[in-house]
């Protein structure tokens, strides 16, 4: 059977897998981004020249430590991490989402820290001088100005997760990985190659859908005054 007729016959299944893939990545990214951005907000100094050097030093150490740990996590082979998580979360979606969340942390965290701390010193100083407290400076000034950089981190994390989500089929994770895995296990049989091919192309489509989504989000959320 050629690819087209395979698709036509299995459209429902393929779409279901695609949808699962999309959702599992979406949840993981939402969770990972919330954790990373929240953490970055906590450890970012609210001013250009902090007055208490000891506090600044401690925050810096925590920041660097967190970046190191999340970067290290990214180098753990996905297969190994999935298997390591199995005793905790069992087969299926929970393990998958957890693993994908872990893989998304580094990119979002790194960009959040970079974006939040790259806000112009003069802007921060005048914010403080006008009587904005630390929280207000973070939420009203630093976060919106860092947002384009943070959003880019989320994009990269999404691409990583779309790819890794396919591997999660090995622990019965939902998504297009199921197609690839089935195809592999029946290699040589009828339609086995089509399954692998559709699974792979499906990941591309899912990535493209995310890209379109982020383009819209960017349009809607990046303040007009700093849009390039």
């Amino acid at each position: 059977m050629d690819l087209i007729s395979y698709l036509r016959e299995n459209a429902g299944t393929v779409l279901l897998y695609g949808e699962q893939h999309l959702l599992v990545v979406f949840f993981a990214i939402a969770l990972g981004s919330t954790i990373s951005i929240g953490f970055a907000l906590l450890v970012t100094p609210g001013e250009a020249a902090p007055q208490r050097w000891s506090l600044d030093w401690i925050l810096g150490a925590i920041r660097d430590g967190a970046l190191l740990v999340t970067a290290a996590a990214l180098t753990v082979p996905s297969l190994a991490l999935l298997v390591l998580l199995l005793p905790l979360f069992g087969l299926g979606a929970a393990t998958t989402v957890t693993a994908l969340t872990i893989y998304s942390l580094y990119s979002v965290l790194r960009n959040s820290v970079a974006g939040l701390s790259s806000v112009d010193a003069g802007v921060l100083e005048s914010a403080k001088g006008l009587g904005m407290g630390r929280l207000r400076r973070l939420i009203r000034v630093q976060l919106p100005l860092a947002w384009p950089v943070i959003l880019n981190g989320i994009r990269v994390a999404t691409l990583i997760d779309v790819a890794i989500a396919a591997v999660a089929a090995l622990v019965r994770g939902p998504g297009l990985g199921q197609l690839v895995l089935t195809g592999l296990s029946r290699y040589g049989a009828a339609n086995a190659f089509n399954q692998v091919l559709v699974g792979t192309l499906g990941c591309l489509v899912v990535a493209a859908v995310f890209e379109i989504f982020y383009a819209i989000v960017e349009r809607l959320t990046v303040p007009r005054g700093i849009r390039v």
Partner: peptide, 8 residues
């Protein structure tokens, strides 16, 4: 440096 908020 003035420090106007660029997003406002």
């Amino acid at each position: 440096q003035v420090g106007l908020f660029p997003h406002f």
